[in-house]
Amino acid sequence: MKRKILLTLLLLHAVFPCAAVAAQWSSELQYGRYYPELDQWRDYYGRDRAPYFGAAMAYRWFSFLELGVEAGRMHDRGRAILASNNTYAGSVELELYPVSAQLQVNARFAAGQWLVPYVAIGATQLYYRQIVVGQEKASGRVTGRLLRTGLAFNMNILDHRAAAYMRSGYGITHTFLQLERRQLTADTDTVALGGEVALMSLRFEF
């Protein structure tokens, strides 16, 4: 498998030599809303979403292809139930930490392209921790997968002077504002912990 990936990359490099780029690293800061797949989430946590924060790092072989890793955190606080009379009681905290490795394809055809659609697929290790006040914690992890689709707006074209300053001062060649929707699938034997995430992120290319 590793050999196949390596050969594919070499082949791509041979076919698209002009697509090789000087800027090879990128980072992202992400903020968004996590919409869990669980259908009773709202009943227990009061709303159908939870805040999500994340950060990502990627290496680009070509302008249209990159390999990256990212980590995020989702946290929410809700209630538990007493099974005997089905009443809500107590307090529960749930934390999810997805850690992903992913391959991203950017529809990028020119350096100054202002709108770049992208799609990414990846593998995720979702770590969870659940704290019920007065009871023991539950923690563990589950393996899942990730599908990202989004649009990246090149912010360099909005302010060339600021872009030049970012390049000379910090080595940031491009800054993108990304709007993204992602599907995270991570199922334990009994629980689907995944969901959809609506994200806004800032991407810096070095």
Binding site: I81, A89, Y128, Q135, G140
Partner: peptide
């Protein structure tokens, strides 16, 4: 008195034997 049931009900991957012997995960 009864245990609270959180949602979702997630499995704990703690130290199984020790948890069983000492009664609780923490």
């Amino acid at each position: 008195p009864e245990r609270l049931q959180p949602y979702p009900q997630l499995a704990n991957e703690g130290c199984f034997i020790a948890t069983a012997a000492f009664g609780y995960y923490d």
